[in-house]
Design a protein around this nucleic acid. Structure first.
Lengths: 256, 256
DNA sequence: GCGTAACCGTTACCATCGGTTACAGGTTGT
DNA sequence: ACAACCTGTAACCGATGGTAACGGTTACGC
């Protein structure tokens, strides 16, 4: 009905080159509108499952498709926005856990717990994002959501690689191992969501155990022994912060 | 052109209850025809990527869609057949490796090598099957292919569980760990196929290393130390054989 | 031999859903 | 008043999964 948005708080407006005062207000408005549609998509996701249609989303937002398509170029674009949304939530929980300077095992447990609590809370979103192909079988398969998962793997790679170099190990294995661990956690997550055959605490514990087991086992084979309950001296918090701000940039500054 | 198939070898026909001699001959023929279409689908897969259409498959087989739909109820059904096909190949290579009574590390390496050599040879099929959603966004999402992957995880679960019980460990972890390892290998596989940033030997080695690391690490934490280069006494070959025959049954006896 | 049961195969169509076109206002600063 | 930017709708396009209806051919069973 009303085309112009409710007057947004606009402390100071600077008349840019072609300076039209309306411009930046609209811009703010568009961002808010996108977020609104993302919420609608989440509702549609809960209601219709992972293969919801654009019409569902539009209806959920109380409009028709073309309106939706003024804010998202593609279904892939919407998907991407959902991916960013999910990634942001996940990172928001993962990072504090990662940066908390606990001993190895408590730290791993903390991260894993953050992961499982997140997918526990947003199971449908998780299932949607874990699907590698999705986003329509017929479109150019942008598959950019996959990029977000990749980013997590990359950050794990960074941490692993640094630790491995610090221990004088072959850091060439860091990348495959990082992807391996990500796949491990992801698959356990999917399995757990599908079955729920045990409580969250148990699954967190088992997952922690195998990850620490892998790290410990490899280190021992290389002659390094680490106390699982004593904090390590090296700290790569800074690295992680970088990755995080990268994620932040992507999640918020979605220019469409 | 010719409606009736080339006369099939038919040593003895037993006239069943409603005994019509034609019946069983057609049955054989239908099986052969399905296989023919599966081959066509594989060609279509190589030509058009994972989102090939039914028309592509039909064309590849030299017919039109309705013919294809006389042999497969759904796209999901075709997908399922492809899944069985892939599973069969994979199992055919995995099982000898699993049953070869080597020491732990060589044995793991052998299995992992079988896996990577398979996906190396059938990359498109692998990519198709790894996709959880697939089979069209709009159909009842039978998702039965997923079942095959599950079977692999189950067989791993069996092996893990037995060994764990043999070592007196909590076997409740067997199932999540099995899914974890499957996810780990799968994700490394996907990553490797996408990048090919290292040779097969290297990736096999790294993967073997982390898996053995995990096993060794966990065992050590439980106070068990195993020589990675000495064969274990326990042998669960029988178990695996059972799983295998199960797979065989599914792969061949596809009643449509 | 004729009917029947099973297959062969085609053309033409339907339904769904992603995405677009065309049209018709609203609000607000210059 | 006008331009610029939004609001919104109904109707449509095109690709693709899937179906209907039709007509042929082979070979068994009576």
């Amino acid at each position: 009905m009303t085309a112009m948005p409710d007057r947004v708080k606009r402390s100071s407006k600077q008349p840019a080159s072609t300076g039209d005062a309306r411009r930046d207000r609209w811009k703010q408005h568009r961002i808010a509108r996108r977020a609104e549609f993302v919420e609608a998509a989440l509702r549609a996701l809960d209601k219709h499952g992972t293969d919801f249609g654009m019409e569902h989303v539009a209806a959920e937002a109380g409009v028709t498709k073309p309106v939706l398509y003024r804010h998202f170029t593609d279904k892939a674009d919407l998907h991407l926005a959902l991916g960013r949304y999910g990634t942001k939530i996940l990172f928001n929980r993962l990072m504090p856990a990662l940066n908390d300077e606990l001993a190895p095992v408590p730290r791993i447990r903390s991260v894993i717990n953050a992961f499982f609590s997140t997918i526990d809370e947003y199971p449908n979103l998780y299932r949607l994002l874990v699907h590698p192909s999705h986003s329509g079988d017929r479109l150019p398969d942008s598959d950019i959501v996959h990029e977000d998962k990749e980013m997590i793997a990359t950050s794990v790679t960074a941490v692993l690689g640094d630790y491995m170099r610090a221990f004088g190990l072959d850091s060439g294995a860091a990348e495959p191992w990082a992807h391996g661990v990500v796949g491990l956690v992801q698959n356990i997550g999917t399995w757990w969501l599908d079955r729920r055959s045990m409580g969250r605490d148990s699954i967190v514990e088992y997952t922690t155990e195998i990850i620490w087991g892998a790290i410990d086992g490899i280190l021992r084979q290389k002659g390094v022994v680490v106390d699982p309950n004593k904090p390590l001296e090296i700290n790569k918090v800074v690295q992680m912060r970088n990755v995080w701000s990268e994620a932040e940039r992507k999640a918020t500054g979605d220019g469409a």
